[in-house]
Simulated scan of single mutants.
Amino acid sequence: MMSNTTAGGAESDGNEGVRRPTSLADADALDAFVADADAALVEFYTDGCGICASMEPVLGNVARALDVDVALINPRDDPPLVERFDVRSVPLFVLFVDGEPVARRAEGFIPGDDLTAWVDERVE
């Protein structure tokens, strides 16, 4: 099945309304992603993190519920990125509004309703 990119930067599998997190390769891609979005939720993760993987469908639900852009980035091979966002545990969720980080959460698995409410409270 081919994947398309929607105007919001999230990948679509061809079904209307289906949004998936965009995978970002590095700090430059992260900066470009958040610069292009009014609001963006980014999960910092590492390979092999089961909780991180279980959050991906939750992020897709948040994207659909709130019409925010969502992305995933693995900062493991980018020490300056780890330092810049003070990544001490994963998953780490950072909410960006107008390109600036405005809030963060790093408490393991977060149910979709909780994450949606957390984002919604901070995005005007």
Results as ranks from 00 to 15, higher is better:
residue 76 R to V: 15
residue 61 N to P: 12
residue 74 N to Q: 01
residue 81 L to W: 06
residue 67 D to G: 03
residue 19 R to S: 04
residue 21 P to E: 11
residue 89 S to T: 07
residue 18 V to H: 11
residue 11 E to A: 15
residue 1 M to K: 06
residue 89 S to G: 11
residue 100 E to N: 12
residue 56 E to G: 13
residue 112 G to M: 08
residue 14 G to K: 07
residue 61 N to H: 14
residue 7 A to T: 12
residue 65 A to W: 02
residue 118 W to T: 04
residue 46 T to W: 15
residue 107 E to T: 09
residue 25 A to N: 10
residue 103 A to P: 05
residue 9 G to M: 01
residue 110 I to M: 11
residue 102 V to M: 11
residue 1 M to I: 03
residue 48 G to Q: 10
residue 87 V to A: 04
residue 121 E to Y: 12
residue 33 F to R: 00
residue 24 L to T: 08
residue 71 A to V: 04
residue 70 V to Q: 04
residue 27 A to K: 11
residue 79 P to G: 06
residue 90 V to T: 14
residue 20 R to V: 10
residue 82 V to T: 08
residue 16 E to G: 12
residue 54 S to P: 08
residue 69 D to K: 09
residue 118 W to K: 05
residue 32 A to V: 05
residue 114 D to F: 11
residue 68 V to C: 09
residue 113 D to I: 12
residue 74 N to R: 00
residue 101 P to D: 07
residue 113 D to T: 11
residue 84 R to Y: 02
residue 102 V to W: 04
residue 1 M to V: 04
residue 110 I to F: 04
residue 57 P to L: 15
residue 28 D to A: 07
residue 20 R to C: 11
residue 1 M to R: 10
residue 120 D to R: 09
residue 78 D to G: 09
residue 98 D to E: 13
residue 44 F to N: 05
residue 81 L to A: 09
residue 116 T to H: 02
residue 40 A to F: 05
residue 62 V to I: 15
residue 23 S to L: 09
residue 68 V to L: 05
residue 1 M to N: 07
residue 81 L to C: 11
residue 41 L to F: 06
residue 66 L to H: 08
residue 29 A to Q: 13
residue 93 F to G: 03
residue 62 V to C: 03
residue 77 D to Q: 12
